[in-house]
Amino acid sequence: MVPAIEVEALVKTFNRGRKNAVHALQGISFSVWPGEVVGLLGPNGAGKTTTIKCILGLISPTGGTTRVYGFDTRTHRREVVRRTSAVLEGSRNIYWRMSALENLDFFTGLYGMSLSESRPYSEKLLELFRLRDRKHVPVQELSAGMRQKVAVACALATRTPVVFLDEPTLGLDVETSYELRRSLKQLAEEENRTIILSSHDMHVVQDVCQRVIIMNQGRIVVDDTVDNLLSLFRTRAYRFVLSDGLREDLERQLRARFPEVVVRRDLQTVVEVVVSRPEEIYLLIDLFREAGLLIESITQQEPDLEEAFLRLVRGEVAC
């Protein structure tokens, strides 16, 4: 089977040969298989948008290759574009003076679709995103969330096998973000499309994506399934509740061994720690026992992707 997307040794340097050269991508490689929903995560400047734009041919890479269904972006851009669509800057990607339906008609038209071909699916998307009642209203009169949904609908309406969503939930309130990701999840499940979703919103990625690629400073830090990534942290994050106070010398010992340890002293003493190897849990227990402390409870913390992301990007944990 041909991968939906192949990225090989992709390099992008802006202002090449100058003092202020920016190495946006430093030789990244990955493949995405048809039907996969992949999250692209990373802090600002990690290279997520540059990666997407290189695949789409909107930015020329300095080195390496990108292919969509086997077509090289550099030599067969038209074939690549025919198979891809994108939301690139949230709701800035649509015409605010035109209505949702007019935008959908226009962008599907640009992909060579007649109205009779595009309208039934456009109407389905309007229904799915709960925009049907407002489909004739100019986009500028819609709420920020609705505008965002129109932008996503415009990208999906072209029915391309690959869809790039760059920050689709940027600036949305919790409720709208939840609604949008519910719709995206439904579409991903029903239509088996390949979706690459870049976002700062970990909940969107955790909820919608099967796999996540975490980038930092133009490099891939981790490329794994969301489940694997979460289970990795699930087994290593612990919360101890101690009956007595933690002496300062013991806290120093703990910090020397686990630099990110969190100690809270309220009615009880709570110690939160992430161990890098599972057997380190015994070391902790031994330390508490030797100090004569009673452990009232040990709970395995339920990590979310945000925590995993932060620790991976900071280099605290290696996968």
Partner: peptide, 13 residues
Amino acid sequence: MGTLEKLYLSPLG
């Protein structure tokens, strides 16, 4: 408006 890149994504060019 941020629509220029979208126009560049038309298969016809």
